[in-house]
């Protein structure tokens, strides 16, 4: 459950506030910790997705406060921040996965290629075909490896002939770096693969419908370092064709794979900058406190 205490609550909030105050900064004023506007460069010229003044509510509770952010074409943007800061919630509003939660409501302007994605006229099926998602836990269908990857194309009727489908499946598995490992056992259950292989299968499944944007919600949190390295390598390769937004708890991972990094704190977007800058000389003290391990 995402929580976002009010300004006045933050003084008693967990760990974060004293940590920021200890930095020698005497001003305990909330304005300092929560900048009026996001620090850094949240907006870009060549944007694939634009988000303006996004507020997300779970019933009465507000999880996201006035977030404005652009995701550029073919860039990898990492969303980092302590647990419960709203980064997953934000990510899930980008392909309207939050629609499945009854009490969740999203306010603000979110566009994909200048098209409002919360427009009632826009079909959510089409949106999700264009904005794919990879989840935290590998979640292959209890079907064969082939059927797992072929599910999306079949759903949208992307292949009319068997060989076309075969081609899509092979290409997707190749891009996900899984083809050589599974090409002899495509008819075996996808759930029989190892955790890392399952996650790459899920990535293959996501890219099988050729989405424009791929959202990844902590894709490596359930994987060992070797599998993680493979996925990161894969993200690097995919970034030439896809726009990728990745939520991660590992700052090394964010540093390794992303071009830009956005730091979320208690539902607010604190800072967005080039990844290098965020990890070497962050503009905001909260970001610095987080990346130096003071809290989170």
């Amino acid at each position: 459950m995402e929580t976002a205490p009010n300004f006045t609550d933050t003084g008693n909030g967990p760990a974060s506030i004293p940590a920021a105050g200890d930095k020698g900064d005497n001003t305990m004023d909330a304005d300092i910790r929560y900048p009026e506007n996001t620090v850094g460069k949240p907006l870009v010229d060549d944007a694939k997705m634009r988000m303006r003044d996004v507020n997300v509510f779970y019933g009465d509770k507000q999880a996201i406060f006035d977030v404005s952010l652009d995701i550029g074409n073919n860039e990898v943007i990492a969303l980092i921040g302590p647990s419960g800061c709203g980064k997953s919630t934000f990510l899930r509003s980008l392909n309207r996965m939050n629609d499945t939660i009854d009490i969740c409501s999203v306010k603000g302007e979110l566009t994909l290629d200048e098209q409002n994605i919360y427009d009632p006229k826009l079909d959510v099926v089409e949106l999700r075909a264009r904005v794919g998602m990879v989840f935290q836990k590998p979640n292959p269908f209890p079907k064969s490896i082939y059927d797992n990857v072929a599910y999306g194309p079949r759903l949208h009727g992307l292949a009319s002939k068997r060989y076309e489908l075969d081609e899509i499946v092979e290409n997707s598995l190749r891009k996900a770096g899984l083809w050589d490992e599974v090409k002899d056992r495509l008819d075996q259950p996808g759930t029989g693969l190892s955790g890392g292989q399952q996650q790459r299968l899920c990535i293959a499944r996501t890219i099988s419908v050729s989405p424009e944007v791929v959202l990844m919600d902590e894709p490596c949190s359930a994987l060992d370092p070797i599998a993680t390295a493979k996925i990161e390598e894969l993200i690097d390769e995919l970034s030439s064709q896809y726009t990728i937004a990745i939520v991660t708890h590992s700052m090394q991972q964010a540093a390794r794979v992303s071009h830009r990094t956005a730091y979320f704190h208690l539902g607010r977007l604190i800072e967005v900058n080039e990844t290098n800058k965020v990890f070497t000389s962050p503009d905001h003290q909260l970001t610095e406190a987080y990346i130096t391990g003071r809290f989170g």
């Binding site: 392909n95 996965m97 499945t100 099926v125 089409e126 949106l127 999700r128 075909a129 794919g132 998602m133 989840f135 836990k137 979640n139 292959p140 269908f141 209890p142 599910y151 999306g152 759903l155 949208h156 899920c202 499944r205 996501t206 419908v209």
Partner: peptide, 18 residues
């Protein structure tokens, strides 16, 4: 039925009925 299966299918663009 694990909700992750539903999310996976929804994320691929399946309708609720599908």
């Amino acid at each position: 039925v694990p909700p992750s299966i539903r999310e996976a299918a929804l994320g691929l663009g399946a309708s609720r009925m599908q």
